[in-house]
Computed example of a mutant assay.
Amino acid sequence: MDWKNKVVLITGSSIGIGRELAAQLLDKGACVVLNARNASRLSQTLQAFQEQGYQGIAAVPGDVSNPADCARLVEAAQQHFGRLDVVVNNAGISAEGDVGELSPEVFRKVTEVNYLGSVYVTQQSLPHLRESRGTVFFVSSIAAFRGIPGHAVYSASKVALKTLSEALRVEEEQHGVHVGIAFVGFTENDPQKAIYDKDGVLIPQPSRDFVKQEPVGVVAARIIRMIERREARRIFTLLGKLNGFANRFMPVVAGRILRRSYHQRKEMG
Rank of each mutant, 00 (worst) to 15 (best):
V99K: 07
S40V: 10
S132V: 01
N189S: 11
S94N: 13
F249L: 13
F183T: 06
A160S: 03
E75F: 08
V8W: 06
Q124E: 11
V219Y: 01
D199N: 15
Q47R: 12
V216P: 02
G217R: 10
H80C: 03
K198R: 13
R108C: 09
S118Q: 03
I57N: 04
A91P: 02
P206R: 04
S155N: 03
V139T: 12
S141V: 09
E188H: 11
Y115G: 05
P149K: 00
N38E: 07
S165F: 05
H80P: 02
Q213R: 15
R234N: 05
A232F: 13
R234P: 13
V99W: 06
D85F: 06
V252W: 14
E188C: 14
D98E: 11
D69W: 08
M226P: 01
W3V: 11
Q78A: 09
L161I: 08
E171S: 10
N66I: 04
L46I: 12
Q192K: 09
G244K: 02
E112G: 05
I227K: 08
T11W: 04
I148V: 12
A160K: 03
V179L: 01
R256M: 13
R108Q: 15
N114Q: 04
V86W: 00
T135V: 00
K266L: 12
I15E: 15
G200T: 04
A77E: 03
R222N: 11
R72I: 07
D2N: 13
R19D: 09
Q24F: 15
L21R: 04
Q213P: 14
V177Y: 00
A221C: 06
S103P: 01
V8S: 14
Q213S: 15
R259L: 06
V33R: 07
M226R: 11
L161S: 07
R41W: 13
H263L: 12
Q24S: 15
A152T: 09
L258F: 15
G217F: 08
P67A: 05
F245H: 07
L129T: 00
L116A: 03
A246I: 14
L126P: 06
F183K: 14
A167T: 08
L239E: 12
F107G: 08
E112R: 08
A95I: 10
V121W: 11
C31K: 11
V88Y: 07
F183P: 14
V216Q: 14
A167E: 02
V179F: 07
E214H: 13
W3L: 00
A59Y: 05
L46H: 12
S261N: 13
G53K: 07
V60E: 03
K6H: 02
A152K: 02
D209M: 08
E96F: 12
K198H: 01
N5I: 05
E20Q: 15
L21C: 13
P104F: 14
I93N: 01
C31F: 06
C70Y: 10
L25C: 10
I181F: 10
A144E: 06
E172C: 00
A221M: 11
A58K: 02
G180W: 09
L126S: 07
Q123K: 10
G56H: 07
L46Q: 01
T45H: 10
A167K: 02
V86P: 02
V119S: 05
L34Y: 01
D209Q: 14
